[in-house]
Design a binder for these strands. Structure first.
Length: 139
DNA sequence: GCCAACGTTGGC
DNA sequence: GCCAACGTTGGC
């Protein structure tokens, strides 16, 4: 199983919106970046991901699961863009802020730190464990 | 609200 | 195929 991170502006699509979709989950559509799309194409059913709020909040707030593998993005006719569906698994007991992540030496190689603009990114298993521990949340 | 970083587009 | 111009993102 692989681990990922999905970034969203809470004013556009928040953790609460995601939770409201329940088990059905929701398309992670609207991504128009090749790197991000390629990562989504690699995702497998059951892969886990962090749900990250960018902009004002800048914190990992929950855990999601891939519930549909890569398929065409329904918000465009452009065949270049694919996306996956994700569903909420559980919220973080304590959101883990970008500041905390930056302050943690074991997370210095995270894509979130290295390339802050990439909206869908891979997370290593070691990083996954550290962030979950910081958030007092079961991996 | 600003600005730096980065990705994409389009002209050559 | 290169590179300048432009648009967008996201941290501060």
């Amino acid at each position: 199983m692989a681990y990922w991170l999905f970034k969203s502006e809470p004013s556009t699509w928040s953790w609460d919106n995601q939770v409201a979709k329940g088990e059905a989950g929701e398309e992670w559509d609207g991504v128009r970046n090749y790197q991000a799309r390629n990562f989504m194409r690699e995702m497998k059913l059951g892969d886990r991901g962090f749900f990250y709020h960018s902009q004002s909040e800048k914190a990992v707030v929950g855990i999601v699961e891939v519930c549909a593998e890569s398929h065409p993005d329904s918000t465009t006719d452009d065949t270049r863009w694919d996306c996956v569906d994700i569903k909420a698994v559980r919220p973080f007991e304590t959101p883990v802020t970008l500041d905390q992540i930056k302050a943690e030496a074991r997370l210095s190689e995270m894509v979130l730190v290295k390339n802050s603009r990439l909206s869908v990114q891979p997370v290593t298993e070691a990083e996954w464990q550290v962030v979950c521990a910081l958030g007092d949340t079961k991996p």
